[in-house]
Amino acid sequence: MKVRLVTEGFFTLLDDEQIEQTLIAPEDGFYWIDANLEDLAILQPLFGIHDLAVEDCLNDEEQRPKIEVYSDHYFIVMNSIRFDNEDIYLRALNIFIGQHFIITITNQKINELRLLKPTLWEQEVNRPDYFLYHLFDLLVDNYFLVGDRIEDKLELLEEDILIHPKKNHLTEIIGLRGEILWVKKMLGPQREVIGSINKRDLHLIDHQLQKYFGDVYENAIKVSESFETYRDLTGNLREAYQSGLSARANEIMRVFTAITTIFMPLTFITGIYGMNFEIIPGLDLKYGSYILLGIMAILGIVMFYIFRKKDWL
């Protein structure tokens, strides 16, 4: 657990023994407590965190983004997104915001919290609600970055499928589509959380700041629409994959048909001269077998040339 006093964007790190100091509002700035799940045992009785909020934080299952309003603080759940090794990860970020403090509780490292520090310094942030705004802004912007990488992945898949469709392409498409649908399911509640901060009368959020949350809400809508587009693109890729397989099968069948057609007259000739009759034209010729093989070779080459010229092979 890290306890920081944030004053005009500058950080002063406090000792864990000074945690009780955070109960009293500082003369200037606010306290930011960056904690993990184990620290809830200390923070709950200290800040009067509701049992249901603690239960939500400790729940191993995926948490839907939400906001719960208590008398002296709000409890907010948001999801950070990562795209590593072609997989999408959503990581829960639990936030408690009060008049003079903000508590962030995570089970895993959230990259946006690290990126937030220089932003707080540049903007000279001095209130927890402004901290919350910049954090939400970073969270939503990161969805755009992940969306760009997903779009690049879809474009590469499309190129590979059009050039040479493979069996593993279908597995990639189905896996990526499932992850996109999973993210899209979480985007709806997350968008509503941001929208509620923009529209509701929340006494811990500066009224002048709410219009900035409105801008973040518009970006959240764009993110949701983008992932809707990605879902449709995966469906188009699956259709392209099926079409590619059909075209490839047709190409193979065309080659096999042409080869079979070339060998049909050759088989006809060998069939005639393989019959057990005493009188067959050319049997008495000294070089009859060579002549026959030559005719067969010429016939095969001529048919192959005709098929190539007509682009049948």
Rank of each mutant, 00 (worst) to 15 (best):
S80N: 12
D215M: 05
V216W: 04
I262K: 03
P281G: 00
T229P: 01
I163Y: 10
A41L: 05
F256W: 01
T106F: 05
E17L: 07
I272R: 00
L46E: 09
F47C: 09
Q123I: 02
P45C: 07
L202N: 08
K185R: 12
P65M: 13
G271A: 08
E251L: 09
G175K: 06
D206C: 05
D51N: 09
H73F: 11
T119I: 15
A53C: 11
I95L: 14
L138M: 10
I95N: 15
L46G: 12
M253C: 10
K310M: 14
E62C: 01
P281I: 00
I205E: 07
I205Y: 04
L23M: 15
F307H: 05
E251W: 04
R238T: 03
H73T: 06
E86V: 00
E192I: 07
Q210F: 02
L285Y: 01
V183A: 07
E20Y: 09
L204Y: 04
L58Q: 11
V69Q: 10
R238K: 13
L120T: 09
D152I: 00
I194R: 02
D206P: 06
Q210S: 13
N111K: 13
K184F: 00
I262V: 10
D206I: 04
P165K: 07
L292G: 05
R248D: 14
L204D: 14
L187Q: 02
Y31V: 12
G175V: 01
S71F: 02
K286A: 09
H134R: 10
H73R: 06
T257V: 04
L292Y: 00
R127E: 15
T12D: 15
F101Q: 12
L116M: 11
R308L: 09
T267R: 03
L58A: 06
Q21Y: 12
G214L: 05
T267S: 15
N79Y: 01
E155H: 01
I205C: 04
P118Y: 08
A35F: 03
Q108N: 11
N107I: 06
R64W: 00
I150H: 07
H169M: 10
Y241R: 07
F75C: 12
M303A: 07
Q123N: 14
V3C: 15
V146S: 05
E17D: 15
A25K: 11
R91F: 02
L5A: 12
F277H: 03
I88E: 00
Y70T: 06
I295N: 08
L37M: 09
I67D: 15
I262N: 10
V54P: 10
N168V: 03
D206K: 06
I194Y: 01
E172T: 02
E158G: 08
I76R: 08
P281T: 01
K222W: 04
I262P: 11
I298G: 12
G300H: 02
Q210P: 05
M296D: 08
D51E: 15
P165I: 06
V255Y: 02
G188K: 01
D51H: 10
H207S: 15
F131G: 13
R114K: 14
F304L: 15
V216K: 03
L266T: 02
S71G: 14
I105T: 04
E86C: 00
L37I: 08
L135H: 04
I301G: 03
Y217K: 09
